[in-house]
């Protein structure tokens, strides 16, 4: 079950991982994108951390504050995509605090916003298997790592990398990698799973 405390702890851990991996994320984004994923995500998550300190009064406000900071600060495609994910969790959290229900709502929001589907070499290739694993009660670090790695041989069909067509093969998708950190942080946060 998600609470204000463990959700803020989860998002803070995510922010720390993104900050630690900023240059790696931009490096991944260099051959198949515009080399800004690390900087964009850090800018967003610095704003998120500020918005969550002090912690908002309830879970819905935690997700709303996170979403608004990401939407207004990230700049690239990741802003609307992650922002929509957290907005959908905010909406769902008014009636539900189950992680699996919230993550499923977030995934549906990402799919609608970006118009991508599984296999397009986007963050959905991490979100979809992770949501399934959470629903089955079987989320492990290996599930997350395998999902991130699965994007390497894919041909990008959405996002900036899609302009490269076949040349996008052989590179991890930066959004998939940053989503991997979100779920790694989830696994590392006590009391959620």
């Amino acid at each position: 079950m998600l609470t204000v405390e463990n959700t803020v702890a989860w998002i803070d851990q995510f922010a720390d991982q993104i900050e630690a991996k900023q240059s790696y994320l931009s490096e991944l984004d260099t051959p198949i994108g515009d080399a800004d994923h690390g900087g964009n995500m850090v800018r967003g998550l610095v704003a998120v951390k500020a918005a969550l300190n002090p912690a908002p009064a309830d879970l819905t406000k935690v997700f709303q504050a996170t979403a608004m900071a990401l939407i207004s600060k990230v700049g690239g495609a990741s802003g609307p995509l992650y922002g929509t994910a957290f907005l959908e969790m905010a909406k769902q959290s008014k009636t539900d605090t189950d992680l699996e229900t919230l993550l499923a709502a977030a995934l549906a929001g990402i799919e609608k916003r970006g118009g991508a589907t599984t296999g397009d070499k986007t963050l959905i290739d991490v979100w979809a298997p992770v949501v399934s694993a959470v629903q089955a009660g079987k989320l492990t670090q290996a599930v997350v790592d395998d999902a991130v790695a699965s994007t390497e041989p894919m041909v990008a069909k959405k996002g900036r990398a899609s302009y490269l067509g076949e040349r996008s093969v052989g590179h991890l998708d930066p959004g998939a990698v940053s989503s991997g950190y979100l779920f790694t942080a989830l696994l590392a946060t006590e009391g959620i799973l």
Partner: peptide, 11 residues
Amino acid sequence: DLGSAKMNLEM
């Protein structure tokens, strides 16, 4: 112009 502009536009 490009894809992410569309997402921000839709929001």
